[in-house]
Amino acid sequence: MTPNSEAELAEMILGAEGSLKLQGGGTRGIDVAGISALLSTREMAGVTLYEPGALTLVARAGTPLADVVATLASEGQRLAFEPMDHRPLLGRIGTPTVGGAVAANVSGPRRIQAGACRDSLLGVRFVDGMGRVIKNGGRVMKNVTGYDLVKLMAGSWGTLGVLSEVSLKVQALPEAEATLLGEGLTAQDAVGAMSAALGSPYDVSGAAFVSDGGKAQVRLEGLETSVRYRLGQLAQSVCAGWQIVEGTESAKLWQNVRDVIPLAGEKGAIWRISVKPTDMPLVLQALGSPNAVCDWGGGLIWVAMPAAWDGDLRAELNRFGGHATLVRADAKVSGGTPKFPPEPAALAAISKGLRQKFDPRGILNPGVMG
């Protein structure tokens, strides 16, 4: 099932006689229980409105992210939330789409400064499980009245509706970019330096740690004179002795973090863990010091857990108040371990009620989020 328009999408969902697996570019490979058909939005593509002066872009859900990036770059602009490309980590092919990024709320290293994907969303159009076309939000920033379905759809993984169009605010490309890179650091030393940099007045737009080589990196962006000044201040204080990496080499460092390239060739299960940033060293220690990529100042941890590890990762996280998403399973955890962490009873009741409201037949990506 590959609709070419929102009207066709609504007709297909209304006429569906079984469960549907929803797919944009097919780069994340989610598992859906008991599907009877695959519904792809890849033909619903194209930028429908772009106003550089208003920092606003509207695109159909199936629009390749690469097309959005190229369109923005032609006017010296970009997506602030720096969406990840999952293909290297998951070993998949396909084309990342803007609708897929929104549905999964995909947010990269710049989240610590610019917010998540949902924070760049201005409006959405989607078709719910009854084939109804729903519009929420708009094409400019404004106060929200009533239910904020825009934020609700971001990260819902298609369980509430199928996105047909998204409106995004964008930002200008910076004049300069540079990274301070420290090597041979312990996780504890790295989180201390990253926390200090993030707590400084120097407007850090990225702070990450890669366990292989003990590499910590802190990014600065903006006007060239401003970047130079801030680099100098950090290099004389919390990042003393660190190497300065600029331009395309700096961008490559952050692409590797964004796409979790250091774990791409690792065997075993891949987990995405969210914890308090300062707990990052303790979490890695509790998990047996696996290979890890730690973004957001240590608050986001990607780990590759070897099959030989016999612990319960989610149980280990309980004492830190964190939670984990299973991004790529191996033979040991496949089938028996849910992708998303279990929700507290009160939140689970709300989630169930929302799915019942928007998809009473339970046909949209059943089983993906409980």
Score class of each variant (00 low, 15 high):
G34I: 08
A235K: 15
A70K: 04
G182V: 06
G362Q: 10
E51W: 00
S289M: 13
V218G: 04
S164A: 07
T2L: 09
A61M: 05
R87G: 06
R314S: 00
W242S: 08
G353T: 04
G265L: 02
A66M: 00
N291P: 10
G222L: 07
A66S: 11
G353V: 04
R230S: 02
R92V: 09
L282K: 09
M194W: 02
V191H: 05
A66D: 13
K142S: 13
G222W: 10
G268R: 03
G362M: 08
E224Q: 14
T225D: 13
C117G: 00
L163P: 02
R228E: 13
W302N: 01
G192L: 07
K215A: 12
E266W: 00
Q188H: 00
E43R: 12
E17M: 08
A324D: 11
A33I: 03
V162P: 03
I134Q: 10
G129R: 06
G206D: 05
K142E: 11
K332F: 13
T63G: 14
V162S: 00
R28A: 13
A114M: 01
A329L: 08
L354N: 04
W157V: 13
A45Y: 06
L160D: 05
R28Q: 11
C294A: 12
P366A: 07
A348K: 07
G53M: 06
G161D: 05
V69H: 12
G29Q: 14
S120H: 10
G322I: 02
E177M: 15
